[in-house]
Nucleic acid binder design. Structure first.
Lengths: 330, 330
DNA sequence: TCCTAGCACTTATATTACCCAAGTGCTAAT
DNA sequence: ATTAGCACTTGGGTAATATAAGTGCTAGGA
């Protein structure tokens, strides 16, 4: 269907267009392929008929179509190993034993954004493996106290709550109850147990048990909250295709936290793979590409995402993500 | 030196320029002031000589100079009360008792950014009034444990630390030591006490006391860390003066977290006032204005900042900040 | 049948000339 | 002191033109 030479041409066009952001003309290619520009032109015409290439105007060079990028990513892209520079910088992060897992990830994101001029994102939540380890309270004064909840994987949440007219002894009893009855419960089942096992008991002897229950409920609930971290939003400005302020504004708005939580959450790829969504394939923007992969550690699980223009260094980003994913999961 | 009519003219020019972002011509003013455009023109010429007005080109209308804005802010601006809409939205936040102080502030920042299309920033740290209330540990497994530190004002910090080859009993002893000896110490003096009162003692009986000491030191240190929250970075794009992508990129870069921490930290205004830094008066950018005020609550203290183009709704921003400052400090 | 040289053709981009609207400064008269 | 009148300046828009880049197509050669 598509000849080897055509593949070669498509590959060159993608690579050159990614590099220079200008439509690629036949002249540029014929040098590399040892044939005349006319030959290339007729091949390009065929590739255009196949829907793999596009023109920006009748007499312009070619740029890859969405389908063209897709074909490139699926069939032509070679995952060259990372450049020594990329590798080195990342290794510095992961070999720094001072850093906790979470900081490693945050630093990696920053680095990706900085090195590639794309936007990198992490959407994470406490891993479902987390089980309730211990709950403790620290009274501040008569009315206020701090509730601290810890899971066996070391996730911590705390909340300051105000319980006027509640006897501290009652609170302590409740805490003991929780520590006796539901420690060891997977963190996402705690809310239920709290309602069906704890609430009925405290309702008997605590005056303001509703308040107390709610306070605890909220703290536990925090564990299931997703937290998002977006780095390098402003990087879109650095790409030639986004040369007008209005367009940049549109995209920047789409990159707002709330919107991205939904969007990233909705990506249904294979968590073990690196998934690529080019242009219309993603729900972000037709001119952008979203590259995503899942990660899972003992503490936390979630997704790492890199967002850039369709004209993206696909191979480089995939290598980077692979490296990070591997290193995080250890 | 400057006549009442000139003041009036300057005022109108600032207001109209803020509103429409176009140089203000004499015609627009003579209606309001009941005199001919020629009169206004000669007055404008005088104001220009005084350095309060500028032209964008020989035959353009006038725009305020930096000095002009300064004069306006110092002498002409009237603090009209907030619009009903602004007021209402803010009150909803502050009357929501569900929200902790910190969330209130965060929500207010969002609201300011959204309502004004400027960028709002909070730089905060635990208030110096915080005193160490309690430290506790929760062992996860043989080598790992969580350290939790709480202050009397309810600030909490925690850290997961890894202490292989350290006897849990030794850790507990150290914790008791801290709870006995330095509870009640202002949080920014804890590090010292830890070094001079605790370290020498544990050095005697804990094998790996260096590791242990460092772990605790780090947790305490977190309290003095400044945390920054920047909302609405992308809002600069919405102002007509920033119509080219490169310029926007420059400013966006200056608004990066690290840079802003330094910049905001360096502002030396009167914390009880609202301080305005126009153009060259600030270290951010000659085309921008920085409006800042301090806040202090029991838990936390810091600065709130609004950043926008020099052509800014000064009166509105000042009213907003005043309102927020007042409401936060209760 | 595939390849290529040659050429007419298309489009984007840059340059120039030109006009108009907005607004100024200056002068002379009130 | 104020104002009407007018010449003058500038930016922005539009049309005309030239240039560069690159295409598609045709016809001839391997």
């Amino acid at each position: 269907m598509i000849t080897d030479r055509q593949k070669e041409i498509l590959k060159i066009i993608v690579q050159e267009y990614v590099r220079l952001a200008k439509p690629v003309g036949s002249n540029l290619i014929c040098d590399t392929l040892n044939c005349s520009s006319a030959t290339i032109r007729s091949e390009m015409a065929t590739l255009e008929e196949l829907g793999l290439l596009e023109k920006t105007h009748t007499s312009s060079g070619r740029i890859p179509s969405e389908k063209g990028y897709r074909y490139y990513v699926d069939n032509l892209m070679e995952l060259k190993k990372m450049s020594a520079e990329d590798m080195l910088k990342l290794q510095i992060i992961f070999r720094n034993n001072q850093l906790q897992f979470n900081d490693c990830l945050a630093e990696s994101l920053k680095l990706i954004a900085e090195m590639t001029n794309y936007t990198s994102i992490k959407l994470g939540e406490a891993s479902h493996d987390n089980k309730l380890k211990e709950i403790s309270i620290i009274p501040l004064d008569n009315d206020n106290l701090i509730v601290i909840v810890v899971t066996d994987m070391g996730c911590v949440e705390h909340k300051s709550i105000s319980l006027p007219n509640v006897d501290l002894e009652d609170v302590k009893k409740t805490v003991n109850l929780i520590n006796n009855l539901i420690v060891g419960t997977p963190i996402d089942e705690v809310s239920q147990k709290l309602e069906y096992e704890i609430k009925p008991i405290i309702a008997n002897y605590v005056e303001e048990h509703e308040k107390l229950y709610n306070a605890f409920y909220n703290v536990f609930n925090n564990f299931t909250n997703k937290n998002i971290d977006i780095v390098g939003k402003g990087n879109i400005l650095k790409h030639k295709e986004f040369d007008n302020v209005e367009r940049v504004g549109q995209i920047l708005e789409k990159l707002e936290d709330d919107n991205m939580v939904k969007l990233v959450d909705n990506i249904k790829g294979n968590n073990n793979d690196i998934n690529i969504y080019i242009g219309k394939e993603n729900d972000l923007d037709d001119d952008m590409t979203v590259i995503e992969t899942g990660y899972k550690t003992r503490q936390e699980e979630g997704k790492i995402v890199v967002i850039g223009p369709k004209r993206m260094e696909y191979d480089r980003v995939v290598s980077l993500l692979e490296f990070i994913k591997e290193n995080i999961e250890r």
